[in-house]
Design a protein around this nucleic acid. Structure first.
Length: 377
DNA sequence: GAAACGTGGGA
DNA sequence: TTCCCAAGTTT
C-alpha cells in the first residue's frame, strides 16, 4: 500500500481532461523536428524506437540517417546480410538490438507479407519488441490506444501523481501503463504518448526539472507537494564489476590481426582484437599468451607490454593490458577466421572507442618506451 | 526479480 | 574523477 495507490487507480476525470488538452497543445508547439517524425511509416518508427532504447536522441540521429539510407525499406533490411547490418550499427552499442531487429524484420516479411503487424500480441512476439516498443509503434504508427511507458513516462507520471513507488520495478511500470491507458485520448494516441516522452526529455528532466516553464505544472501533484526534486524513486544499480583482460597486438607489416569474438556475451560475434579474460591463475602475460594461442589456434610468442588502460561499460569495468604477441608463421592463418586490418581501420571495428583509446596508448608508449616498465594492474 | 548488455554526455 | 543517466529487452 504505497501513498500513490489511490491516485493511480482513480485519477479525477477533470484532471485527465486537463492533462490531455494541455499536453497535446504543448506538444503541437514544442515537438522537435526529428528524422523519424517525417512520416508514419511503421518501419521508420520501428527502427527509431530500437535505436532509442537506452540511447540519447543526439547520439541516435546520425546512426539513424545512415541506417535508413543503407536500408530504406523493411524489405531491403530483410534481404541484407547480417554482417552488413551489424556494420551499420557499429558504435551504437547493445548489438543484440541490431540482430533482433534484423531477425524480426525477416519474420515480418515471411509471416506477415512485409506488413508490420498491428495487433499487440503479434507485434510483441517479434524479437527485440518489448512492452514499450510495441506500444510506441502501435500508438505512433497506427494510432492505437496502447500505452508506451519508457523512462521518461515513468518519471513524468510519477511526478504528476506524486508516486513514491520504485520506477525500477516491473510492477511500477505495469501500474503506470494502466494510468497511461486512462490518459491516452482516442483521437491522438501517438501524439499523446510522444508528448509525455517529449515533456520528460525537454522539461520534466531527471535532475532539476524546469517546473516554471512546464505546461502541466498546475496539474502536478509532486509540484503541489513540493517534492518534485525527490521524485521519482529509483533504486540504485550495482556498480560495474571489475575485470582484467588482455588485448593481443599481433602485427604483420602495417596490418593488425582481428578475429571474431564469441557469439555469446559481450560484443557477441563482433570483430576485434584477440581478447583474453585474465583468470587469477594465469594473470602473468606468458600464461595469457598461452590462452590466446589456444583461442586462435596458432603459435605465438610474448612480446612487449605496450600499454595499460581502463575502460568502463555500464555493467563492467575493464583493466586492459595490451600485449604484443609475435607470430612466426603467418601463412597458417585461415582468412575466414582472421582479418588483417590497417591500424587506421581498427577504430571502425567494434568496439571503436576502446580501440581508439588503445591505439593512442600504444603510440604514446612507443614514443616514450621507458614509460611502461611492467604491469600496473 | 536480477543480471547481462554499450556508449557518450553532463554535473 | 566519478557517478548518473537515455525513447528497454532478453534470459
Amino acid at each position: 500500500m504505497g501513498r500513490a495507490a489511490k491516485p493511480l487507480l482513480h485519477p479525477e476525470k477533470e484532471w485527465i481532461e486537463a492533462i490531455r488538452e494541455t499536453l497535446l497543445d504543448w506538444y503541437d508547439k514544442n515537438c522537435r523536428d526529428l528524422p523519424w517524425r517525417k512520416n508514419k511509416d511503421p518501419y521508420r518508427i520501428w527502427v527509431s524506437e530500437i535505436m532509442l532504447q537506452q540511447t540519447r536522441v543526439d547520439t541516435v540521429i546520425p546512426y539513424y540517417e545512415r541506417f535508413m539510407s543503407t536500408f530504406p525499406t523493411l524489405e531491403s533490411l530483410a534481404e541484407a546480410d547480417e554482417e552488413k547490418v551489424i556494420k551499420a550499427w557499429e558504435g551504437l552499442g547493445y548489438y543484440s538490438r541490431a540482430r533482433n531487429l534484423h531477425s524480426a524484420v525477416k519474420e515480418v516479411v515471411e509471416q506477415y507479407g512485409g506488413e508490420v503487424p498491428q495487433e499487440p500480441d503479434s507485434i510483441s512476439r517479434l524479437k527485440g519488441v518489448g512492452p514499450y516498443t510495441a506500444g510506441a509503434i502501435l500508438s505512433i504508427a497506427f494510432d492505437r490506444q496502447v500505452p508506451a511507458v519508457d523512462g521518461n513516462v515513468l518519471r513524468v507520471l510519477s511526478r504528476l501523481i506524486a508516486s513514491w513507488e520504485d520506477i525500477s520495478k516491473n510492477a511500477t511500470r505495469r501500474k503506470m501503463e494502466e494510468l497511461d491507458k486512462m490518459l491516452i485520448p482516442e483521437d491522438r494516441p501517438g501524439d499523446f504518448n510522444q508528448a509525455l516522452m517529449e515533456l520528460g526529455a525537454l522539461v520534466c528532466t531527471p535532475l532539476s526539472p524546469s517546473c516554471n516553464t512546464c505546461p502541466v505544472r498546475a496539474l502536478c501533484k509532486a509540484r503541489k507537494q513540493g517534492v518534485e526534486s525527490e521524485l521519482p524513486i529509483k533504486a540504485k544499480g550495482k556498480p560495474p564489476v571489475p575485470a582484467k583482460v588482455t588485448f593481443g597486438w599481433i602485427r604483420k607489416g602495417d596490418f593488425v590481426l582481428i578475429h571474431r569474438r564469441p557469439t555469446e556475451g559481450l560484443l557477441a560475434g563482433m570483430w576485434g582484437l584477440p581478447t583474453v579474460d585474465d583468470k587469477p591463475s594465469e594473470s602473468a602475460p606468458g600464461e595469457t599468451i598461452k590462452e590466446m594461442m589456444s583461442r586462435l589456434g596458432f603459435q605465438l610468442e610474448l612480446g612487449a607490454i605496450l600499454g595499460e588502460m581502463e575502460h568502463l561499460f555500464s555493467h563492467r569495468r575493464w583493466y586492459v593490458t595490451v600485449v604484443e604477441a609475435l607470430c612466426s608463421d603467418y601463412d597458417q592463418l585461415s582468412p575466414e577466421n582472421y582479418h588483417w586490418v590497417k591500424e587506421s581501420e581498427l577504430s571502425t571495428y567494434a568496439f571503436p572507442n576502446v580501440y581508439r583509446k588503445a591505439i593512442k596508448l600504444i603510440h604514446k608508449n612507443q614514443r616514450n618506451p621507458q614509460g611502461i616498465q611492467g604491469r600496473l594492474f
